[in-house]
Amino acid sequence: MEETSTLTRADLAEALHRTIGISRTDALHMVEQILERMSDALAAGENVKISNFGTFLLNDKAARIGRNPKTGIEVPVSARRVVTFRPSQGLRDQVAGSRGT
């Protein structure tokens, strides 16, 4: 299996610095502000849609009975809200097209 790398906040800030020419500090601040706004929106119950990228959706999961896979004992799993990501068709096509490289 091939090793995959991870894109970080610092990588995004560096790309902004190189592409736009703003300082590294300003670029990192901009990335932080965008991520903070997205987090705040999700925490407030809003979905986050980024055109040509995808949508971060909030889903409410009902309480249920789960099972400990090690012991087989049933345990209650509380209701919770989860964030899921649905990629746009353009992103799906781009990712699918990059598999051959």
Rank of each mutant, 00 (worst) to 15 (best):
R80Q: 13
D93A: 09
E46S: 11
R67H: 06
T4P: 07
G66S: 13
F85D: 06
S51C: 07
L12S: 03
R24T: 14
K61Y: 02
G72M: 06
F56E: 02
M38H: 00
E46L: 12
G21T: 14
H17A: 06
D60Q: 10
E14V: 08
N47K: 05
I34A: 10
M30H: 00
E2D: 06
M1I: 12
D11Q: 06
V95R: 03
F85Y: 08
L12W: 04
E32F: 10
R99E: 10
N68Y: 09
T55G: 03
A43E: 13
I50C: 06
R9L: 02
E74A: 14
G90I: 10
A62K: 15
D60T: 12
G90H: 05
V75M: 14
I34Q: 03
H29V: 12
I20L: 13
T71R: 07
T6M: 09
T25G: 04
R86L: 01
E14A: 14
P69Q: 01
A44D: 08
Q89E: 15
S23Y: 04
P69V: 08
S23L: 07
V75D: 00
L12E: 06
V82K: 05
K70Q: 15
G97R: 12
M30K: 05
D11E: 04
S51L: 11
S51N: 11
D93E: 11
P76L: 07
R99N: 03
R86P: 04
I65Y: 04
A41I: 08
G90T: 13
P87S: 13
A10N: 11
A15S: 14
H17I: 04
A62E: 14
L16A: 02
H17D: 09
L58S: 02
K49T: 14
V75H: 03
G72C: 06
K61M: 02
S98H: 12
F53D: 00
R99D: 00
H29A: 15
L57S: 04
E46K: 11
M1F: 05
R81V: 04
A41Y: 04
L12A: 05
L16P: 01
I22E: 02
I20F: 08
F53T: 01
M30I: 08
T6C: 04
L28A: 15
G54H: 02
V77A: 09
S39F: 08
F56V: 01
A96L: 10
V83S: 05
I22T: 11
V48G: 00
E32T: 15
H17C: 12
A10D: 12
A27K: 01
A62V: 09
R81D: 04
T8A: 13
V95I: 13
E14D: 12
G54Q: 03
L42D: 03
I50V: 14
F85W: 09
F53I: 00
R37S: 08
R9D: 00
V31C: 05
R92C: 08
T6K: 14
L7M: 07
F56P: 00
N52F: 06
L42W: 01
I34Y: 05
A96S: 09
M38F: 04
G100I: 00
M1A: 15
V75P: 09
